[in-house]
Design a protein around this nucleic acid. Sequence first.
DNA 1: TGTGAGTCAATACG
DNA 2: CGTATTGACTCACA
Length: 382
Amino acid sequence: SPLSSAEESSYGLGGDRDPLASQAPSLDPPYGEPSGGESQPGTPLLGPITGLSIQETIAMSPELDTYVLTKKVKEVLTDNNLGQRLFGESILGLTQGSVSDLLARPKPWQKLSLKGREPFVRMQFWLQDPQKVEKLMDMKRLEKKAYLKRRHSSLSDSRSVDGGLAGPDYLQSASPQHQRRTQLYQKKVRVVLGPEEKEALKRAYQEKPYPSPKTIEELASQLNLKTSTVINWFHNYRSRIRRELFIEEIQAAGSAAAAKAGEGDSCDGTESDSTVEGHHGRHRGAPDNMEVRVEAGVSGGSPAQRNCTTSGSVGPVSSSNCNLFSLPEAGLSRSAPSSHTSTPARNHRDNTLRRKKAANLDNIIHRLEKAAGKEDPSEWEF
DNA sequence: TGTGAGTCAATACG
DNA sequence: CGTATTGACTCACA
C-alpha cells in the first residue's frame, strides 16, 4: 500500500539500483523509466502508452494468471535463447536468481502483495510488446560488445586479472545499499548448512514450526550455528513451504475435477499449452525434503481457488485453505534420485509423515491462536 | 519484537 | 556459460 512514495530511494519501483541502467550502455531497468531523476513524484511509466505510474498500473491490473504468464515467458526466452539474467535485469529489474524462482514457482495472483505483482505485470507488458525479442536481443548484443571491449582492453592492458575481482564489474559498482561500503568488498561468505544440520532443523520444524526464542537458542547451540542463522532458516523454510502449498492449490484447482492428479506424473515435459491445467513437471524440487502434495482434498468443499480467469473472488472469508490440511510427504533430496535414503535417518516414512502432519497441525493452531485475537471472522487470516 | 513478502547474491549444479 | 537453490537482508506491519 505505502508503495507509493516510501521505498523510493533504491528498492521498489523507482528502482535505479539496477546496475545495468546506470552504467552499461543504455539498459534501463524495466520498461519506461525515462525520468532519470532519482525517484520522485515523477514516477516511472510502465507502458509506452499508458501515462500511469507503475503502481497505478499494477493496482488496476486485472487478475493475471501467473502460471500461464510465466509459462509463456519461459517459452519465449528459451525459444530465443535469451537468458534469465538479461531478461530479469532489463525487463523486470530483478536478478537472475529471483527470476528463476519467479518463473519456476509463481505464486497465485491473489496471494501476491501489490509489490509482488509488479514483476508479473511487467511480464505481461513485455509479452504484449511485439518487439520484445528484438529488443532483448539488441541488449544482448550490446552487452557482448561491451564485454569484449572490456576484456580486450584489460588484457592488452597487462592486467589480466582485472583489478576488480571477478564477476560482472557492473555489479561491483552497484551498491546493494548496505554493507557494500565495507572495506574492500568482503565477498560475504555464505553459510552453507550441512545435510545433517538441515535434517535437524527440519525435525525441529516438524515439532514446532514457530519455535520460541529459547528453542531457537538451544537449536543454535546444539547445531553450532548462529542464532540468527537458525532464525533465518525458520523464516525461509516456513515461507517456502507456504509457497509450495500455494502451488499445490493452483495445480489442484487447475486440473481439479478431471483426472485427479494422483501420484504418477510422468506426462510430457515440454508442456502442453492449454490454460490452467496442472503443471506436472513435478521434479521441480521444493526445498529439499519438502515436497508437498495435495492429499485428497480436491473434490471436497474445496473452494477451487478461483485463481485464473474468472474473478469470483467473492468469498467472504478469504479462505484458501482446505489445503492447509494437506500434509507434506517425505520427499527426496535431489542428491539421491533413486530410492530414498539420501540421509541415513530416513527409514520410517511413517514416522516422518506423522511428524509432518503434526507440524501442519501446529501451524494451523498457531494461526488459529493468532486469529483468536480478532473478533470479526472476516479478519481471520490463515 | 516477530513475521510474511520480496529479493539479493553467493554458490551449487549441469 | 545459464539456471536452481538458499541463507541473509530490507520493509511494512501489528
